[in-house]
Design a protein around this nucleic acid. Sequence first.
RNA 1: CGGCCAAUAGCUCAGUUGGUUAGAGCGCCUGAUUGUGAUUCAGGAGGUCGCGGGUUCAAAUCCCGUUUGGCCGCCCA
Length: 545
Amino acid sequence: MARIQPKILKGFRDYLPEVMVPRTRLLRRIAEVFERFGFEPLDTPSVEYAEILLGKAGPEAEKLFYRFNDQGGRDVALRYELTVSLARVIGQYKTDLVKPFKRYQMGPVWRAESPAKGRFREFWQCDVDIVGTDSLLADAECIAIDHAVMRALNVPNYLIRFNNRKVFRGLQARIGISDSETMNSIMRSVDKFDKVGENGVRKELEAIIGNGGFGEKGLETILEFLKLAEGTSDNSACIDALEQFLSGTEMGQRGCAELREVLGSAQALGVPDDVLQIDPTIVRGLDYYTGTVFETFLKDAPQFGSVMSGGRYDGLIGIFSSEEVPAVGISVGIDRLIAALEELKLLPDARASAAVLVSVFGTETVDYSLKIAGDLRRAGINAELYLDPKAKLAKQLKYASRKGIPLVVIAGPEEEKDGSCSLRLMSNGEQMQVKIENLAQAVQDNYVDPDPNAATGRSWDWEFAEDMFDRVPAVGGVYLLRNAQHEVLKCGWASYGKLSETIRESVSGEQRAEVATFDWYEIRDDNLSQMLAQFINEKLQPKFG
RNA sequence: CGGCCAAUAGCUCAGUUGGUUAGAGCGCCUGAUUGUGAUUCAGGAGGUCGCGGGUUCAAAUCCCGUUUGGCCGCCCA
């Protein structure tokens, strides 16, 4: 009988464990941020009635659906994106949902288009939306979420460029275009500004002129408008310039007022000014955005395009409801983001779930190894047991090495005799003898989580450098500053969430040169933190008091 | 959908006027006096040369068809 060839469909992918481990960590971290902002998860079926999913998709988009008849002859399709299902949920459970409805949803979507580099037929979307409020605070929250996600993933040098569609509508009024179809194609062209540059946009616009709607003068006005923000990093000056340019158009004035309000709220939420940039060339290619729009770029990897983007779309969610439902949301381009982080070497290189492999020396000592593995697991440590007691030790070590498990417990008859075991560090081959009652502690002390974002609750010997502070999780507790000789210079404490900034602000300019490293310990009780810091200061009498 | 290119071991590929039993590197498995991995040495497994047809004494090699993959364009973001 002929063997069936193992193969997968074009445009579909396997996620092997080595890519799945960092991927799920990343997704989990993003979900944590969403939940920190009070969003709940939602999931919906991947197959729905075609009439629902097709929604208001035009005949062009319809071709891109995986659509078929099920065994009962129903006309169904695989979901094309997540927003339509959200709209259906809003319409279907209207009275049950608390408004504004805040949900996040991560899952695969399917598009029957031709696969290309970075474009697949099955890929993940990761959406977070606020439905049912037109408050601009929601828009500002979205920008704050964007910023928080980038922070949580440890991304350096990102820029959130944002704009407001109403500003563009003001421009439309200014030029005197009334046809919204023309305006949509103009926006699609402008959206390519980054990719094709000013001249590319000019060419595209010239092509549109042929179809009527606006003339040479309008084209120059558009290009002039697009360059308003060029060279300035001062956002409020930028808004002023836009406002002046669009004076006399009601929509333009409203757009600028919204921009100003969202910017102010985002700043008040703690988004620093230098990651935010007003940019009139950001319009998003999709037709349905109505207000705030934004995109996020990595300055160190701009070729990947926007890794996270979103905006307000007040007309879309209401298609299954009787009234209009305002909404604002973000979509994380998870595949792009992973590709970009990989390029920048920012992906945790964790390949194994296990922190430690418990090897099995031989059939006589199996139960001893089983006990050790059980103890480690009860202590909350991810421990893998080698499953073949007859395998040579060399083979077991090789197994750990190939899987990227950093620690191996070796427990033969010699160790069993005195209730100990050997703990081997695969990174350098070092081995230590440990009593089994101390093993869990020893594993914890020697396990370096490959994910730099993992909040371990305590950490030692962090280099006292500017970029490290951002990696201290938002917790409270006690910290120690040390000099190059590892002597304690200062001990302090921070209340919940303030650890990072407290450490940063704890030394004066001249003291700073002396500080080499710092340690921190998470403590959830401020009183306890304070007492502990006081106690340490009394005991050690550190130089900086 | 249109154009160009490719398809030989798990992976990357060599194999040239058609000629014995199709090769290399990497990877994988086993071993090098029995308690130590990613280095070294020895050995081993693994291929109907994408599939179908044709030309020929003889095809991985030449011809036709077909399928799959890649790049460009169209489309989509």
